[in-house]
Amino acid sequence: MSGPHLIETLSGAGSGLAGVLAERAEILGLSQAAHDAVLLPREPGGIAHAERAALAVRMARANADERLADHYRELLRQAGESPSLLAIADGTAPAADTDTRLRAIIRHVDLVTLAPKDATKADIAALKVAGLSEPDIVRLAELIAFVNYQARVIAGLRLLGAIA
């Protein structure tokens, strides 16, 4: 991707922060690369691009960031949406046809987004029981961790951009 990075665009960081962001251009560039690595990986393993996008919408909403959710909603549209994935994105209860594996993923995404302090060894064991491979468990952890990082950078920049 070229042009302004996602964090810059979504934080509405106008001219007031241009100089500040320029001083941290390397970090913005690496953050954009991290976005691509977890949302659009060349090697998605067992977690498809569309599932990643749907989960990211859900996490953006949990972080009360509708603009970020809209970005991921567009990625979901591009990757191919389904009723089941749209229910994930909406943050509602899983659709009736949602399988055991995806239900376990949704539960884990909600837990680690909202209350990571409550996560235990049993939560990783539950993912294994639901059929996730160990590489997919790590891929899922990175996806959750990245979106929560990004939401905080954007939230902080919006506040920073608002001071004179």
Partner: peptide, 30 residues
Amino acid sequence: ADLGLSKVEILDLILSAAIFGWANRLMHTL
């Protein structure tokens, strides 16, 4: 800002807290 932190310093604080929103979600859950 009132305590004298510059905008770049505040951005660095945002980033250091946020990157631990990432790191904590790996180390504490995996």
